[in-house]
Design a protein around this nucleic acid. Structure first.
Lengths: 129, 129
DNA sequence: AGCATACTTGCATAATGGTGCAAATACGCA
DNA sequence: TGCGTATTTGCACCATTATGCAAGTATGCT
């Protein structure tokens, strides 16, 4: 009885994890991160540690400023960056903790979704048969 | 003196973190994950918890099996899935722990790269001026 | 060997994405 | 208001990617 109740709880937990996983693994986020130029911007903002204007971010980039602007907009729409306008300037900033939390949530959801114990190895099935 | 030594260490740590970050944030990985179909496959394999054949994975997918096969190959090349052949079948499996570890490493690198303390808030700069 | 099954690959096509230039918009300042 | 600066947007072009179909390869079975 205890055993059955426990299994039921496990199944529920996995089910919730599955929906969570599907929500967390959004194509849009990965889409935003899959371009080298955008990743470069992300890295810059992470290391710089403060929000910067489009012009500042574009400095040293070989691409047109309009491209940088579009990259930034895309990262903002994906929830990676936040922006705020101040005078003529638009400051884009990376909320490191937010992004880190999102990545860790994905990791957690992946593990929670996975059936407990047995099935964590890729090659298990081959070994059996 | 102690203060200076500490700052130097912090700078070193951030510098290492920056290179690590650049290595971890690989476009290829995000590239592999940015397609809805591939994410669906990933989710299935995560929840199923064991490696499956191409045919099994393709069941219920509306796309051609050749597309599934290509998606799987792409995920394998990105280091997300591993595969092994057994008879006529090819088993693709997700190593959940490996992927989760990769995501957490990204989160750690992001935080390590960020200058300590002050600069974790996006809107700090606007508040100053 | 011959045939069936499982998967991959070549190829053509359609869709999507990245880029630069030029024009438009938004704003501050005199 | 008029001008200069910062950023975004429209548009055309080129490159990349996704897809389905058909053909190819690899393997098991009789």
């Amino acid at each position: 009885m205890v055993q059955i109740r426990k299994r039921t709880r496990d199944r529920d937990r996995r089910s919730v994890a599955a929906t969570t996983l599907a929500e967390l693994l959004s194509p849009a986020l990965f889409r935003a991160l899959c371009d080298p130029g955008r990743l470069q911007i992300l890295g810059r903002l992470a290391c710089c540690g403060k929000s910067c204007t489009v012009g500042e971010i574009g400095e040293g980039c070989e691409v047109d400023l309009s491209v940088v602007s579009r990259h930034l907009a895309m990262l903002r729409e994906a929830g990676v960056l936040s922006s705020s306008k101040r005078g003529r300037n638009v400051y884009y900033g990376l909320d490191v903790d937010r992004l880190a939390a999102k990545l860790r949530a994905m990791a957690d959801a992946l593990e929670a979704c996975c059936p407990p114990g047995a099935a964590r190895r890729v090659d298990e099935r081959q070994r059996k048969s």
